[in-house]
Simulated scan of single mutants.
Amino acid sequence: MVPPIDIPSAAAADLDPAEALALLVWQIEAGADEAIEAAAIDRFATAPEPAPARKAPSAAEPAMAPLRAPAPLVSPIMTPAAGPAGANGDGNAYRAAQAAQSLSELRAALESFDGCPLKATATNLVFADGNPRARVMLVGEAPGADEDRIGRPFVGVSGQLLDRMLAAIGLDRTSVYITNTIFWRPPGNRTPTPAETAACLPFVERHIELVAPEVLVLAGNAAAKTLLLRNEGITRIHGRWFDYQSAGMSRPVPTMPIYHPAYLLRSAGQKRDAWRDLLLIRDRLDGRA
């Protein structure tokens, strides 16, 4: 520690503010880090006051019950009624989704579901498009502005590219069933929050169970991470086959993550890899893989 310079009170009073500030800055730069009083204080001579004696409770004044630790907070998604622990979002969503025995019932359940705050800001529920009896089911991330306005997934610019990608391997919306992991548009097309994804997840899982596709295609990083529970990004797992199986499925579904069409619009250099991925899907459908 560098002690500060001792300036008499009278001299200090004569300093104007600029001089006082300059002197203070100089002392700090010199290493002064403590103010010293003019008179020394013997802190050992100052004993702390004794704590007041504890008063014994009288017969008319019963003893206070001992404090107990507060009960732990329990998330509703971890309660037994919520379905498989943590995997299916809110318990009410899980029960509503599992009660649906058809796609029309699942859509009705979503229309009456208020557990996702995105519903309050969206124009339309974006449920699905295509053929529900198709061999291929494709799951994207979330609706955009065009999808929100029309009420169908993949109808904007990225949807037009998706149609061309499907056509390249002999598919179209009569031979593919399309949905998203989020059923309402996030404001400003922002990334859905984990809570919003968790709220929709039971309906996504039930959606796949009811369609029971032969091949599941996950378009983009969000869909792949949500349904495959993988930490790797889409650049590492695209073009690889995985098995997807929810609790309500009797068999796993061969699942292929691919680049999202919106990403390909921004990164044209990845279209070569996207084409290879599409060929692998075609080979699986034709029994060659």
Score class of each variant (00 low, 15 high):
74 V>M: 07
72 P>Q: 04
61 E>Q: 08
49 E>C: 14
59 A>W: 12
71 A>P: 01
56 A>W: 06
73 L>T: 13
59 A>G: 00
61 E>K: 08
95 R>N: 04
79 T>K: 10
47 A>W: 05
71 A>E: 06
86 G>T: 08
44 F>C: 06
94 Y>E: 02
63 A>C: 02
71 A>L: 15
98 Q>W: 07
74 V>K: 06
47 A>R: 12
64 M>N: 11
70 P>F: 03
85 A>M: 05
70 P>Q: 01
55 K>Y: 06
69 A>N: 02
73 L>H: 15
84 P>L: 13
93 A>L: 00
69 A>K: 07
50 P>E: 11
71 A>M: 08
71 A>S: 10
65 A>P: 00
90 D>P: 10
90 D>K: 05
47 A>M: 08
80 P>N: 01
87 A>W: 10
78 M>Q: 03
56 A>F: 08
82 A>G: 04
60 A>T: 08
96 A>R: 11
91 G>L: 03
88 N>W: 10
92 N>K: 08
85 A>V: 09
89 G>V: 03
79 T>C: 06
62 P>R: 04
68 R>C: 08
45 A>P: 00
92 N>C: 05
51 A>H: 15
64 M>R: 13
52 P>S: 01
86 G>P: 05
89 G>I: 02
64 M>K: 14
62 P>W: 01
61 E>T: 04
57 P>M: 04
61 E>P: 01
96 A>P: 02
84 P>N: 07
72 P>I: 13
79 T>R: 12
79 T>E: 11
75 S>Y: 15
97 A>T: 02
56 A>G: 03
45 A>S: 14
48 P>R: 09
56 A>E: 12
60 A>D: 09
52 P>H: 02
50 P>A: 11
48 P>H: 09
93 A>F: 02
63 A>R: 10
44 F>H: 14
77 I>Q: 08
86 G>D: 07
52 P>D: 04
85 A>I: 05
51 A>V: 14
89 G>S: 05
80 P>D: 02
46 T>E: 09
47 A>K: 05
